[in-house]
């Protein structure tokens, strides 16, 4: 067997069971990280699906004509938190519903013809709130403010506001999760590689006395780091996939991470291993 390869294998073998425990530890952390990533991706997908939807729809009373409606639009737009307000007249709503629901639209129209005339759809205002400002509190505040106008009959929250809020929360949590993961994996791999380096102290000292170049030991340290990072990531992803598969009926339409996310997780953890291996080598060799 090639001597360099043997040297690398013997270096990794020095860590013994520590490597195994380390891989399990990294796997556990990776499982937690992938859970956060999956949650974030799920919310992101939902948010993208409703990307063009207004934050809320304010329905106008039938007594409000188009001129009054448009006046209300300009009054609402003065609110700094509201990005835009689109007025949709009764006629426009009817046309859009007929296009959207076809036969069902006609049925709805006929069903309400007695109570609400030939067009049962109310005029409405599509209100878009600045995404950066959307929180539960600001949304509540805006709803109350709009409801205070006499022209408004009812308000419907489309869910886009809450989604944006959740998306921001999950972004923060995922970022913290990534930070904690990086630190923990760095610590785990660093401890194992340091342990191996300490176990080889006499050997390394002898090799230094015999004229070893520092780069001679670089490969074992780096391969050890890559090995721990890569195998830990695979172990974590495997566990996560197993859990997802086991609970697939309870989770419904939740999909596994995308191939890019999987590759990113593996590459990132291997990169951490590489860096830890490099810095530990600089310290010990």
């Amino acid at each position: 067997m090639n001597y360099r390869l043997k040297n690398v294998i013997s270096h990794i073998a020095r860590a013994g069971t520590s490597s195994l425990i380390g891989i399990v530890g990294i796997g556990f952390i990776t499982t937690l990280l992938t859970t956060l990533l999956l949650n974030h991706s799920f919310i992101l997908r939902q948010s993208e699906f409703k990307m063009d939807a207004p934050t809320l729809v304010a329905f106008l009373k039938d007594t409000v004509d188009e001129a009054m409606g448009r006046t209300l639009v300009s009054r609402l737009e003065k609110n700094g938190q509201i990005l835009a307000v689109n007025y949709a007249s009764k006629a426009e709503k009817l046309a859009s519903r007929e296009t959207e629901f076809q036969d069902l639209g006609v049925l709805i129209k006929e069903a309400f013809s007695e109570t609400r005339g030939v067009n049962p759809f109310p005029a409405s205002l599509n209100v878009y709130v600045d995404e950066e400002l959307i929180t539960r509190k600001t949304l509540e505040h805006i709803v109350l403010e709009i409801k205070a106008h006499d022209e408004i009959e009812d308000i419907l929250l489309t869910g886009q506001g809450q989604l944006k809020d959740r998306l921001r929360d999950s972004e923060r949590t995922t970022l913290v999760g990534i930070g904690v993961t990086v630190i923990t994996i760095w610590f785990i791999i660093g401890s194992i590689i340091r342990k191996t380096a300490i176990a080889r102290t006499d050997e390394v000292h002898l090799m230094k006395l015999l004229g070893m170049f520092r780069r001679y030991l670089l490969a074992p340290f780096i391969v050890h780091g890559l090995f721990l990072g890569g195998l830990g990531a695979l172990c974590g992803l495997g566990c996560f996939y197993g859990m997802l598969y086991t609970f697939r009926s309870q989770l419904g339409g939740v999909h596994f991470l995308t191939i890019y996310q999987i590759i990113s997780v593996i590459v990132a953890e291997m990169l951490i291993g590489l860096l830890v291996g490099f810095f530990t080598h600089r310290k010990f060799a």
């Binding site: 001597y3 230094k208 006395l209 015999l210 004229g211 070893m212 170049f213 520092r214």
Partner: peptide, 28 residues
């Protein structure tokens, strides 16, 4: 390292790699 490669060292306690064979130690 270049300096030490020009010198041959025989240590008092010999200092071999205990898990390597004689030919591997000699080849080091």
């Amino acid at each position: 390292p270049y300096f030490r490669q020009k010198i041959g060292l025989v240590f008092q306690d010999c200092k071999f790699l205990a898990d390597k064979t004689i030919q591997e130690n000699l080849a080091l």
